[in-house]
Every structure is written in C-alpha cells, then in structure tokens.
C-alpha cells in the first residue's frame, strides 16, 4: 500500500545487519541504515565534508564512517562526531511495514 508523502525505499532484507545502502529518488540521494539491533534509519546520501556517498562507508554501532576521509556521523541523529566533518547530516523519518521500508523526504 502507499502512504501519503511516503516513498517506498527498499525491503528490510536488502540491508545487512549493521550496514547501509544507497537509495536514489529523482535527483536526490539517501543512505538507509540497519543497525545491529535491526532498527532502520535514513540520512542524506552525501557526506557534508565533500561530495562522497556514505553508502560506501562502514557502519559501527550508531556511527557511519565516511569512506573518503573517515569523518563520522551518528546516523540516528545526524550529528557530526569526528573531524573532518563539522556539519550535521540531515535525517529522514522511516516507516516499516510487512518487510517494506518507506521514507519521508519532504
């Protein structure tokens, strides 16, 4: 089913435990995370330091580490946690329903 204002992003099992995938929608790009506790989160796709996609990065606990220069964010809140990043990432609400993941991007 579809929800007003929500976009179907992926299936729960598309993402491995403690990992991240890329999701593109129109001309925008996002990163969708699955934590070790099987919770799901979404942020902007590109790092706030330079334009590199976070989906190539490593997920450790609540952190996503940028693949380019190892800047770190808390993907649950978007907070910048380690240099060189100093600007927070935008986060987006997600919704899970019978194995599907929906994202609200506006």
């Amino acid at each position: 089913m579809a929800y007003e204002g929500w976009i179907a992003a992926c299936e729960e099992e598309d993402i491995e435990e403690e990992d991240v995938i890329r999701f593109d929608y129109e001309d925008r790009t996002f990163a969708i995370y699955r934590s070790a506790k099987n919770e799901y989160f979404a942020t902007d796709g590109y790092c706030t330091h330079e334009k590199f996609h976070l989906a190539d990065g490593l997920v450790m606990g609540n952190y996503i580490e940028c693949p380019k220069h190892n800047g770190r964010f808390d993907y649950t809140t978007g907070e910048a946690k380690r240099a060189p990043v100093c600007q927070a990432l935008k986060t987006y609400p997600l919704k899970q329903e019978s194995g599907h993941i929906w994202i609200r991007i506006n």
Binding site: F52, H53, D56, G57, L58, E65, P67, K68, N70
Partner: peptide, 10 residues
C-alpha cells in the same frame, strides 16, 4: 573505486 574503503577500514 570508493568500494575499497570499507575493507581498508576493517
């Protein structure tokens, strides 16, 4: 490409 980063980090 950027896909090497995760393994180097590990």
């Amino acid at each position: 490409g950027p896909g090497i980063a995760k393994d180097i980090r590990l």
